[in-house]
Design a protein around this nucleic acid. Structure first.
Lengths: 192, 192
DNA sequence: AAATAAAGGTGATGTATGTCACACTATTTA
DNA sequence: TAAATAGTGTGACATACATCACCTTTATTT
């Protein structure tokens, strides 16, 4: 049940078996069916979720009613409205399941307790947050610099596995283009 | 000399005087004149810089030759090409000074040593990186959702101090719009 | 103080991408 | 297995913003 989490942590830091055994006890389990919500915008994000199975998407809805996807979280990744989770303010993200999903949930008090008691865990979280920041910065610059076509092709290269699993309009929304534009980009690419 | 850094750290974690006295010894000083570079794209980013005075900007140049600003770093903030600093690979960012600047430089080996020896520092860096991630995620979503006009107005609200110090074309580049568009947005706003 | 470079403004024109509308197919759900 | 819902494709048209070109004003530099 916790192998994936254990492997993910161990790929970054060395954690002792007894430390991890303790860490495990802090989680609760949750299953979501496809299209069920983990978090609704406006609520407080009380847990962060480690994805054991399935894919979650985190997105906002702007005033014009369009969705903008911040993130997909598949097996081995974390999902949360960080801003809400950290500050206890209401969330601006919606998080739902694009496939049936199994999650490990961790509340903020228990998370902080764990990091306090086990320095290796604070180290682990610093590292993954750092990597996440680097990836987000690159994505931001790419979203400023690239055309629709370039964005899609980079996505294909970067997340080949996701392309299979995700409907196109979700990818379009992640890339910041419309589904129509993505459809035309794909048609063009196929012509070559 | 180190008061600002001390205050910034202490606003987040409690660090002991002797711990900070040790931490201080790991830095070197550097002054930059306006328009001088801290980092050229392609080089390895050997240091992260804490800004004591002045403003740095971090930016990329895309294939078409346009600049895209990732970040301004003024007093009390850090600057680096994180991706390069963390992985020892060549940087994709340029970092230069928009005003005469004074920096405190910290190499990666000494940074990691400090965090290892002083858990409060690892905690501090986790927190500021986390906040940075939250801010970057919000900016990414805003860049997808907002018009040129909305972007500029949000910038005015979020960084009123910077608006005074920065030339408009730098702000435009940060917002992902052209200087011409920003000029027209401002004209329109002034008309009301 | 003159020369040079940087910053800012504005019109004319171009274009990538969005919007709307409708058709078709695949997948759920009852 | 029928009905409903979700996903995809494509044409006609609209538009926000970029590009280009040129000019004025304000800082630097010598």
């Amino acid at each position: 049940m916790f192998e994936l989490l254990y492997n993910k942590i161990n790929a970054v830091v060395e954690i002792k078996t007894e430390e991890f055994d303790y860490f495990k006890t802090l989680f609760t389990h949750k299953k979501l069916r496809k299209r069920q919500y983990f978090l609704h915008e406006g609520n407080i994000c009380k847990h962060q979720a480690f994805v054991e199975k399935g894919i979650l998407r985190s997105y906002t809805i702007d005033e014009k009613g369009s969705e903008h996807i911040l993130q997909f979280s598949s097996e081995g990744w974390w999902a949360a409205d960080l801003s809400s989770y950290l500050s206890d303010e209401s969330s601006f993200l919606n998080i739902d399941a694009l496939e049936d999903a199994e999650l490990l949930l961790l509340s903020k008090p228990l998370w902080e307790q764990a990091m306090k008691e086990i320095p290796a865990l604070e180290h682990y979280f610093r590292i993954i947050i750092q990597n996440h920041l680097v990836a987000t910065q690159k994505r931001l610059l790419q979203s400023l610099a690239e055309t629709a076509d370039e964005k899609y092709n980079r996505f294909l290269q970067t997340y080949p596995a996701c392309v299979q699993r995700l409907p196109q309009h979700q990818i379009a929304s992640y890339l910041g283009i419309t589904r129509e534009t993505l459809s035309r980009v794909r048609k063009q690419a196929a012509g070559k």
